[in-house]
Design a binder for these strands. Sequence first.
DNA 1: ACGGGTGTGTGACTTAGTCACTGACTTGCT
DNA 2: AGCAAGTCAGTGACTAAGTCACACACCCGT
Lengths: 217, 217
Amino acid sequence: MQIAEHPAFAGMEPDLLQDVQKRARIVELPAGQQVFRPGDQCQGLPLVLEGSVRVQMTGSSGHEIVLYRIGDADVCTLSIGCLMAGRGYRAEAIVETPTTVIVLPNSVFDSLMARSAPFRRQIMVSYGERLDSLMMLVEEIAFQRMDVRLAEWLRSHAKDSPLNITHQTLAVELGTAREVVSRLLKDFERDGWIRLARGRIEIHGDGTPPQPPPLTA
Amino acid sequence: MQIAEHPAFAGMEPDLLQDVQKRARIVELPAGQQVFRPGDQCQGLPLVLEGSVRVQMTGSSGHEIVLYRIGDADVCTLSIGCLMAGRGYRAEAIVETPTTVIVLPNSVFDSLMARSAPFRRQIMVSYGERLDSLMMLVEEIAFQRMDVRLAEWLRSHAKDSPLNITHQTLAVELGTAREVVSRLLKDFERDGWIRLARGRIEIHGDGTPPQPPPLTA
DNA sequence: ACGGGTGTGTGACTTAGTCACTGACTTGCT
DNA sequence: AGCAAGTCAGTGACTAAGTCACACACCCGT
């Protein structure tokens, strides 16, 4: 994806876009790299062109949970707050697939916010979506049963079926304990819609499966 | 609080401020009033001058949880997302104490974002703080024990000691079930640092209480 | 005084999280 | 090949939290 194709710049005035292309820094991030850690200061606003970055946080207890992902065409809204308030990040970000980002220096970001209505709008929309997704996450964690959440996670990843993932990783994904994941997966396997091996999960989820989720409502 | 004293307008250019004063609508909200409900469309950006509004959401299961509060000098960041993306709210807002808000029409908001750097900055800071608080909430719900959370809530409200609050309300506050709250409160009372009556809780929390919270770490 | 509405207390049971430990698979080294 | 260390998964026993069902106390109006 080219800079100009990032939705944050959609409909942007050509002279501003030129300015961006001159002053933005492009950064390539290899998979596995930690982009920022709790306490880090923010250097600029990253916009993802391609790739995927996982944002997670570690509780005081040492437990971790995945909060959300920043994917193709996304904006790292978290950075805006840090940039503006001048405080450090509270979460950490880890590159999952090789990622290309544009980093807008603070000054460029501010000038775009001042001069481009479409840019402004896009930034606010991204922010709203992030807020929304966190609210949904709160609701899910607070009220949804673990078996249902796990089953949904698996189903939403059924397309890359022989999943290479450990129970521990899955536990962080859902914010629970490894043992809980192991037990539920075992149940699912007994129900016959998944198959387990060390570090691998095969999903044979025939559409909406009638077996796994115990009456939700 | 006067319009000009709201921190969102701190350092704002006088002519812009005049514009705001001309075009902003001031609304008085009585306690108990529902400001918006899930699905409602957003009319403009509300800035709270004085008062307190509770934002909560109802899960698919019918359970409720308080997400955060908008208090004196706050901005309803949730509305920005709705305003920009044109979708409805996902949460609901209820006035807790009589509240005065300024409502900025979309056009005024946008013009301020374009023309005032301090305003822009304040809005982004508010947004960042809101994201932050939701992330903390996620962590708390996912990993903190209920007794600790309840004890902390009580301690943080110890100043208005004979609290008039029901267990049910407290349960929504923490996103749990009423029975859980009742049982924990009973334990606390047995430990001797609170005293219960119908719809009322007296707190005698002598500083950091040595009795109630069972080893956290 | 009575009766309905609203809060609260409790037991029994299910689900989730914690702790401690076993064993299996993987990799690399000798 | 054989072994050792590291990683991953399974499990039992126990505690914490959430659910369900129901009893009962308190409050207020008639």
